[in-house]
Design a protein around this nucleic acid. Sequence first.
DNA 1: TACAGCGTGCCGTATAACGGCACAAGCCCT
DNA 2: AGGGCTTGTGCCGTTATACGGCACGCTGTA
Lengths: 254, 254
Amino acid sequence: MQNVLNALRALEELAVRQPIGVADLARAMGLPKSSVQRTLVTLKEAGWIRPTGSVPTRWVVTTKALHVGRHATDELGLRDIALPVMEELRRRTDETVHLAVREGSKVVLVERLETSQPVRIILPLGQNLAVHASANGKAVLAADPQEAVERYIAEGLREFTDTTITDAARLRAELARTRERGWATNSGEWRADVSAVASAVIGEAGLPVASISINVPTSRMTDEARPVYGALVNEAAKRISTALGRAHEEGDGG
Amino acid sequence: MQNVLNALRALEELAVRQPIGVADLARAMGLPKSSVQRTLVTLKEAGWIRPTGSVPTRWVVTTKALHVGRHATDELGLRDIALPVMEELRRRTDETVHLAVREGSKVVLVERLETSQPVRIILPLGQNLAVHASANGKAVLAADPQEAVERYIAEGLREFTDTTITDAARLRAELARTRERGWATNSGEWRADVSAVASAVIGEAGLPVASISINVPTSRMTDEARPVYGALVNEAAKRISTALGRAHEEGDGG
DNA sequence: TACAGCGTGCCGTATAACGGCACAAGCCCT
DNA sequence: AGGGCTTGTGCCGTTATACGGCACGCTGTA
């Protein structure tokens, strides 16, 4: 099934580089031009990409992927369960609320409700969050077994800002504190002007399946506000966790 | 490339029906079980789906599609251009603002900023909007050439609520009014409790490429508010249109 | 206990994908 | 103006690869 793998890789590569032509894409993928050309036509037939109409031909992705991707949180009705809770959080704080799911060693933003105040950064859904430099990432990591933590640390802790935790020991200590109080925090560790507080949603297996966070401009994240937000996300995550458990029981009788 | 087409179809089918097993999916697709099984394993290898871990095996989509789909508005930097304008709209109205793109005969929601007030419906990104029963849809349709309108009407006007326009003549009249004033409206025509006002974003070819809308509970959509919102979306859409044009000029020198 | 359904894997055949190649058109740098 | 280079597109013979019937072990039900 090499064929399908190539086609899907082409799609991903194209999404990042779009708008792009056959030759460029073929070079980027290290494949013959004619093979890539055939793949592009096929992806077009399937409705996943389309030519811009310009000459020379440039290709872009359609919304088909978005259409498929919106089901990513369907598994246990996570979206339906989390949204009301998220909305209450947003109403109480008037800050941006994020829902991220864990996926392998990645943490991915899947839903968001924005503050009504002006914001600098509006993250696109589908964005991978830095695990060691985001509140959601750290909340998930803290709820993971130690081996998963070590595996992640082994991959290296990339530095984004001057507050990013790049030292393994410091990260372990931070995760320990996170476990104690039930919520994680982020002080401009990914972007200097964004701070956050998050708490993990625990699935039936006792493992973190998602995380919910309150994101604010660093300037508004005072030392008094942080624990208040912490308590809020903690409670919210717990509510989602238990609701998920109930949904699962009803769903499959066990 | 039948192979790839089947794989992508399996992905779409799976997304809608997830969590689902091989046999069910094979039945739904009218394909041999072994072929579908092979496809599923391949899609897993590529990271687009994953087994839930339960027994018997059930498959769900990952966030890979979301990750690819977020580039759907990259083409001319639509997202970057539209978001600031959307945010200003939301700030001025404190109502939910939607950005939809046109794709073939479909209109797809690609970005949203929510009101800070409690809302009943939060639409997932990637959602197809009813063309004749949504403000965004009507805004796009009104900016289309007449032949496109007739082609759409020929497909039939499905009824969603008792205010849905199902009569071709009435729709043509409504589109004419939309063209006159520059903005479209929706009075609970898709969901009784959701009303909206929208204006189309016009691309370089003079055709509609997107649409921006203000969505409010029907109870808040008074006769006084409607033209006010109309003027706002109209101006917003114009700003996005001209900014797009400039971006395009700079982008390719023509 | 028999059975029907499931998910998984094998394997011989035939088909459909591969990729080298050629060609026309457009761009840029003389 | 021109020549060289790169582009997108399409053909076609070979061969590797996907197809799908089939069989297996398992689970839950009648």
